[in-house]
Design a protein around this nucleic acid. Sequence first.
DNA 1: CCTCCGCTGGAAAGCGCTTTCCAAGAGGTA
DNA 2: TACCTCTTGGAAAGCGCTTTCCAGCGGAGG
Lengths: 356, 356
Amino acid sequence: MANARSRSRADRSTGAVTLQQVARQAGVSLATASRALHGADGRSVGDELRRRVQAAAEELSYISNAPAQALARATTSVVGLIVHDVADPYFAAIAAGAMRAARERRLMVMIAATFREPGLELEYLRGLRAQRARAVVLAGSGLAVSADTERLAEEIAGFEEEGGRVVCIGDRGTDLDTVALDNRGGAAGAARSLWDQGHRRIGVIAGPRELTTVRHRLDGARRALRSLGGALPAERVVVGDFTREGGRAATLELFARDPGLTAVLALNDLMAIGALAALQQDLGRTVPKQVSVMGFDDVPFAADLRPALSTVRLPLEAAGEQAVRLILDDPAEAPRRVLLDAELVTRASTGPATHA
Amino acid sequence: MANARSRSRADRSTGAVTLQQVARQAGVSLATASRALHGADGRSVGDELRRRVQAAAEELSYISNAPAQALARATTSVVGLIVHDVADPYFAAIAAGAMRAARERRLMVMIAATFREPGLELEYLRGLRAQRARAVVLAGSGLAVSADTERLAEEIAGFEEEGGRVVCIGDRGTDLDTVALDNRGGAAGAARSLWDQGHRRIGVIAGPRELTTVRHRLDGARRALRSLGGALPAERVVVGDFTREGGRAATLELFARDPGLTAVLALNDLMAIGALAALQQDLGRTVPKQVSVMGFDDVPFAADLRPALSTVRLPLEAAGEQAVRLILDDPAEAPRRVLLDAELVTRASTGPATHA
DNA sequence: CCTCCGCTGGAAAGCGCTTTCCAAGAGGTA
DNA sequence: TACCTCTTGGAAAGCGCTTTCCAGCGGAGG
């Protein structure tokens, strides 16, 4: 008997059941089968025939061919999601939210991780365009300065011209649909809270300056301090990787420059964890007794660190959800912007400044 | 002038640049253009023409239509990844590995989260079949008992018959390509290490019993204890959600049953974190002085908890990578099985038993 | 009784690509 | 010079679906 492997060389089919076969089995035309099963056509099919088609499909275990549908309909049911790194809890939370929203709308999500290489973002966007994704969510923070930024903008424009939709999480320069997170406000609140507890010598450990997220957070903190009569001189800001190790190294550098700091504001929780490690293990300081540490993002484990990390909570999962909603539910003309609030979460890693 | 919106109703095209247009612009036939740009054909194109085609493609910003290619080639460049929850660091790590491997092979990954509903796994597998994914990685632990298990097996068989490939991470009953993690061995090692430190009354907090992962870990621990002359009676095993809260509740229950326990073995790190919280905050015990806590998985923050969590490290990212390699690199006949070792990581949350 | 309309089913024309086949030319050998 | 082989380009036949059009039919209205 003929098995799947013995097809003629000219036969490029996969051996999967086709709609044609379903139609034959049900004794109806291809058109009717298509309408009975997927009928986005606005056309109705008689009850009797519809039942016959459904039965045939069931019996043959028919599974529709999405690429073929995509070709014929000129649209797909996939949305793309571009993040920096899925293993980073920040992006994991966003991804979870986006996937939940996608599920509600019965869409599949194609995910791409750039590992922070700007070139990859462009490449993946092109890949998603090739897939004819309906929409793509750009979750990674934009780069403020980059030769690729312009190319990216062009690519986005091209995509939108073809009917694709793009939304980004966090502000980018461009006028796109945006789900913005209140980085500035959150950072300002964090700085103010430190100030209110008597801290006057506050150090900041920041991620790469090109990230707009970093810029906004830094800016928020700086302004708040200034408006309170303080300042954030350049030597009290150390840039490092946006990771635990980056935070550790940055903290060491910060205290090498000024051992009298009473608080460190980390621009994300990963760095804050590094700061905690540096302070408690390398520098032998007690937190928050001698030095307060404030994080940013409120990753899931923040409350389980010792001391429990005070931080700024960002509604990341909601951001992911909103992003796909925004993009799919009502395709407005003008670019829209949704601002999600940050919330200060005070836990045990911050406390009153000890005046030396 | 005619814009993209003014196409006739009969025109189902997206307005995207097609290969046909590129061919025309380059003054060659469609066939030649196809060969010049993607030629998986084994056929060569003269240098001059190839250059002309490439220039035309560049100039028109041509982006190939993946669905159309998929239809014509009867294969795609997407792999599917089905997990329980992307926000769970366990799956996030696997996903990161899988994505890295996919990138090396220039594949796109379609990800689906089941949120632990077994029905969804089936549904997503069908979705991935519809997409004609080349391969799918089943990352979530299998359910040992489930009405869906059989349906799932059928679905997998159908997919493989059509040329799709499936690999799972962690053992499932079925004879599939598998990247197994040494859950049994890891749990045995963990139990032994506790035993060796003098612990004789060890409680275990476990995730849902249907998960094969849980079964294996539990089994490993039980056997190890038995072989050492101890035992793991049913009342010292409490089942809860595989989450922080589940761990906390389970720990409380465990100590309500037997306040004299000197160690708790959590079957994943999330539960271990809950145990730490329950012990230190709710029960007022010191860890590891009065009670030792051992986790499982070694999530990224395990070392930053207080006390730093002793746990069993699983090479999760490697598992994700291996899975996609296994499945794509050499499509062997017989189902293969790769076993990845677990490694005991002793940190500060475990110590010698205090004999009351 | 005839016409017109609304409804349902089917034939067929694509959607944008890949690949098979064929034709034509180049180069080698007898 | 005649014949054969090898290479390169193009025409055209699909891949599996959706959707447009058209045909046929029954019922309502004149």
